[in-house]
């Protein structure tokens, strides 16, 4: 028995001190002030706030630290921050600015050691391995198991790694990640629902909590993600555009037998 609630996590992509949102990591549109939006989401019942720093320049990175500080002061729920973390020092700067957890994506593929270093220093609960996965049809990855296969993509989806996402998730868990943030690149920004087959495969293999990301727009999508094995469901556009409120999604989940914090 667990009294643990399933979490809803709105994600704020931040750039230059503003929230932005694109489709398939492209075509960015301004979606508001991060601290204001985070506060609104907490009031609506968000269980956690995720910030993704999509800066490409050093100047913007500094702005992002300031954004983390502002959001931390605005909300009293957990705050995870990802984007551009290459070293333990990068992680520490974000934690000092007010992040409770940091998520590492490309750097973990290039240097898996960073996961263990962060875990040793700050504890496994602080370390999220963010995995962007893309469905591959050709047998680019020889897993020998058949069925659907997903490849790990890095550098905001631009670089293929040849890594099998399911195997990589389990390697991340072994190295010290406390949670997997799993984004389907195929579904991200499309509103067609999470890639549940991917979620199920990763949740089974990883043995640590998995956050579903990419594609949710309707209440059923959130429910499907949780049924597939996610402990938490993340979404961005659907909340930023006021299509659905977190309260509404939680009501739907509760009605369908999921434990949520209301």
């Amino acid at each position: 028995m667990s009294g643990l609630a399933k979490r809803i996590i709105p994600c704020l992509d931040i750039l230059g001190g503003r929230v932005v949102k694109g489709v398939n990591f492209k075509n960015l549109v301004d979606s508001g002030d991060p601290a204001e939006l985070a506060r609104r989401y907490e009031a609506e019942g968000a269980d956690e706030i995720a910030l993704l720093d999509i800066s490409a320049t050093l100047e913007d990175r500094k702005t992002a630290l300031e954004t983390v500080r502002r959001v931390r002061l605005a909300v009293s729920i957990p705050l995870s921050v990802g984007g551009g973390i290459r070293t333990v020092d990068d992680g520490e700067r974000l934690l000092n600015a007010g992040a409770d957890r940091v998520s590492v994506n490309s750097a973990a593929v290039r240097n898996p050691e960073i996961l263990s270093l962060l875990a040793e220093r700050f504890g496994v609960q602080c370390v999220i391995a963010a995995i962007d996965a893309k469905s591959v049809t050709a047998p680019q990855i020889a897993d020998g198991k058949g069925g659907r296969v997903w490849e790990v993509m890095i550098d905001a989806g631009k670089t293929a790694t040849g890594l099998d996402a399911v195997a990589w998730a389990s390697a991340c868990a072994n190295r010290g990640a406390g949670e997997i943030l799993l984004t389907s690149i195929d579904r991200d920004g499309t509103g067609t629902g999470y890639d549940c087959a991917l979620l199920e495969a990763v949740a089974k293999a990883a043995g640590i909590p998995v956050i579903a990301s990419g594609g949710a727009s309707r209440p059923e999508h959130f429910l499907e993600g949780l049924i597939a094995g996610a402990q938490a469901v993340l979404a961005a556009g659907v909340f930023h555009r006021h299509e659905r409120t977190i309260e509404e999604i939680k009501g739907y989940l509760k009605k369908n037998g999921m434990e949520v914090r209301l």
Binding site: S2, L4, A5, K6, P209, Q231, R261
Partner: peptide, 11 residues
């Protein structure tokens, strides 16, 4: 056998 760490809101 639940996943560890326990992460999230508990009653």
């Amino acid at each position: 056998s639940l996943p560890l760490p326990q992460l999230g809101w508990n009653s």
